[in-house]
Each structure stands twice: as structure tokens, then as C-alpha cells.
Design a binder for these strands. Structure first.
Lengths: 218, 218
DNA sequence: GTCTATAACCAGATAGAC
DNA sequence: GTCTATCTGGTTATAGAC
């Protein structure tokens, strides 16, 4: 059961956006297994999920998992890597879409927070299942995670040099921004009052106050 | 192995502060099992922890766990309840220690963030293992969690009425403050540059900017 | 209250037919 | 590539001696 019941009792495909992240995956059954893995790992945790849980969701036998992935942990890595790439692309696209200063940092906060809301389950796997990644594959993810930080840091630095932002500690402020956006994956529910976009705008407004800038006018 | 190696190679008891939370527990072996449970659940997750892991840490057989707790999930509930109570007491004590307005909300942020850093492992269990709590015992915890929110909300409201704070959305601002403090449990390391108290002060400063107040002078 | 031993079950992963 | 069947080892929890 992956759907949610909408107000009109029609099941809504909540994972529709997450699906796009995995478009590049072939063959289709591997993609289906990955998408089932996202839902299971997010809802039950990596250790709470069995290969049978994943296989059942796509009407395959447990053995079929091992045709496409060498192990459960390797399936998790595939999910986590594509998830990290998607988040990073979203963040860097937002950075590139606006001129340096208030607009750029606002767009980044907004996009990064909204990504965690829109891709709630994927984000939960990305942010909370790092410990289950096979150790030899962790450096690849850690490099991408370090880029989350440096992109925020350098944009804040830029804004300070242009006299548009202030922060007592650039690395600390970047870390706090990142932290607030990441925690969205823990609590966000599509049943709540805010859409992912609305949450993104709200967080950008709040955090721009923190960075001593005038609230965004958008 | 619960110790960390200090700069001078002496093992430091990192869990010393967490121990105080469980002082009320009797008999001593039950307390020892709870403390071992905190470390295991935080480091391996509830599903990743076996009753053997817990028992081995205190040199007991797996069966000894069931003399003191009816199940592994019930041991988790005991931990989570005492953890919630400790966090709530810390928050309410901070609220009571300062006059309404900037000082009070600053003290609350500082204390709540520092609690999550100081009691890192306990906080991880409290904030990330709610799904493994037996369903019939969840309402008790949810009542306490709701109080986290209302205490922050009413304090912000107070500050706004006194013209000391501003916020576009009180519930949203309270939620963001809570969220940032909770996420400390995910990333904080005692090896990092900031002590729990220093982190608390830093977060209070950042968030008071967000609430449109002058930075705390403390 | 603690132990050893074990029941009853479930996990990840593989073998080999189709 | 997918299945059924199964291996091997680990899981929670209990039984009964001390």
C-alpha cells in the first residue's frame, strides 16, 4: 500500500515526484525495486525492512532482488546516491537561478527545504540511513554532503562581502540552515497545512531574518 | 565500550550526564540495562539492537533482560519516557529562570539545544525511535511532545505582546526553533569544536536574530 | 535474580529448475 | 530473469535448574 487517501477518497500517488529521481534506472524492475525500497526503508527503517517486504510491493519473489542488486545494503546505496545527487542538483540549480546576495541564498533555502518536503521518504532514507551504507561506499556520499555545506557557506560569504547579509559565524550559520532543512524529512507530512513550496518560502523568510536581511519580497 | 578517548588518552565517561536521568531507577541492574539500552539503541537503532547486545554490555545473559522488562520494546519505552521528562524539565526550568521576553526565549533555546547535545544518545532515542514504541504507550509521550510546542509558542506570544519579538507565524516559528534543536541529536559530536553550552548560546543568538530581537548580550 | 538451554520463528542470501 | 525451495544463522522470548 503506497497510496494515500485523498479528500475525495481517491488514492493519490504521493511518490510521483520521487519517481522522477529514478527515471535513469534500467531495467524497469530494478527501478520498481528501488522505489519500493524507498518506501520500505523510510517507513520501517533499513533494519526493520525485509527483502520480502520490498519484493512483495512489486509482486516479485525475494530472490528477484538479488538479480538486480548484490545485497540489501547495496540497494540502499543506490537509493542514497541518487537521492544525494537529486538534492545537490536542486540546490545548485537554485543557486544558479538567482543573482548573488539575498535572492540567491533565499532561493537555495527555499529549494532545499522544499526538496526535503516533496521527497519526504527519499529524504528520510538519505538523511537517516547513512549508518547502514557499506563503509567502502560512504566516502562518495560524504563528498556530496560536504558540498551541501560549502555551497551554503560560500553563498553566505558572498552576501556578507556585498554587505547584504551578516552572520557571526559563517560555517555555523550554514550548518544551522542545512540542519533546519534536513529536519523537514523527520516531521513533514503532506497532510499538514503547508505545501512543500509554501514551507520553502516560509523557511527562506525566517532564515533571511536570521541573516539580518530584509524579508524576501517574493 | 562506552568511553571515548580524550586528548590525553584517558578514556572519558561521556555518558556521565545521561546517567543522572536514570538515577530514580531501581534496582541497579535495571538501571544498568536502561543505560546500556540507550547506547545500543542510539548507535545501532532499535531494530539493529539485539537483547544480547544490551545484556553483554552489563555482563548479564539475554534472559536477565526479561526479569526487569517484559519486552525489548518496553525497555525502549522506559528510556523514552524518562528522556522526554528530562528534556521537558530542562525546558521548563529554563523558562522559569528568566523574565518573559528576550531573556526567557533565549534561555529556553539555549537549554533545549544544549540538552540535545549533552544527552546526545538519549536524545537520538527520544527523537528517532518513536515508531518502535508500543502503540498503546504513545499517547503519553505525545502529550509531552505537545508541551514542547506550546511552551515555545506561548513564550513567543508573550514576547510579541510586549513588543520585544516579532514573528510572521508564531506556531511556525516555534516549530522551526524546536526542529533546529532536535536535529542537534542527529549531528552533534562531543569531538567537535563546540561544547553543549556554547552551542546553546550560539543557537539562542541565531534564533533571536530570527525573532527580530537584538542579539543576547550574555 | 541469574543462569543454561531451547522453543519457535524469521532473516539474508543461494541453488537450480524453467 | 523469475520462480520455488532451502540453507544457515540469528532473533525474541520462555522453561526450569540453582
Amino acid at each position: 500500500m503506497s497510496g494515500l487517501i485523498g479528500a475525495d477518497d481517491r488514492p493519490m500517488r504521493e511518490g510521483a515526484d520521487e519517481a522522477a529521481v529514478f527515471d535513469c534506472l534500467e531495467p524497469p524492475k530494478a527501478r520498481a525495486l528501488v522505489m519500493a525500497g524507498v518506501e520500505c526503508f523510510a517507513d520501517l527503517g533499513f533494519d526493520g525492512t525485509t527483502t520480502r517486504d520490498i519484493a512483495e510491493r512489486v509482486d516479485l519473489s525475494p530472490a528477484a532482488v538479488y538479480v538486480h542488486f548484490p545485497s540489501k545494503a547495496d540497494l540502499l546505496f543506490t537509493i542514497s546516491k541518487l537521492g544525494h545527487e537529486s538534492a545537490l542538483q536542486t540546490l545548485e540549480a537554485a543557486a544558479a537561478s538567482e543573482p548573488p546576495g539575498t535572492e540567491r541564498i533565499g532561493a537555495m533555502i527555499s529549494a532545499f527545504a522544499a526538496w526535503h518536503a516533496r521527497n519526504r521518504r527519499l529524504a528520510k532514507v538519505v538523511q537517516y540511513e547513512l549508518d547502514a551504507i557499506p563503509p567502502e561506499r560512504r566516502p562518495e556520499l560524504n563528498r556530496m554532503r560536504r558540498r551541501f555545506e560549502t555551497v551554503f557557506e560560500s553563498t553566505i560569504e558572498e552576501g556578507i562581502e556585498a554587505n547584504l547579509l551578516t552572520a557571526p559565524d559563517v560555517a555555523g550559520a550554514a550548518m544551522a540552515i542545512l540542519s533546519l532543512c534536513i529536519d523537514v524529512a523527520r516531521w513533514y507530512s503532506p497532510q499538514g497545512p503547508r505545501s512543500p513550496e509554501s514551507l520553502g518560502r516560509f523557511y527562506a523568510d525566517l532564515l533571511l531574518r536570521m541573516l539580518n536581511a530584509a524579508p524576501a519580497t517574493a
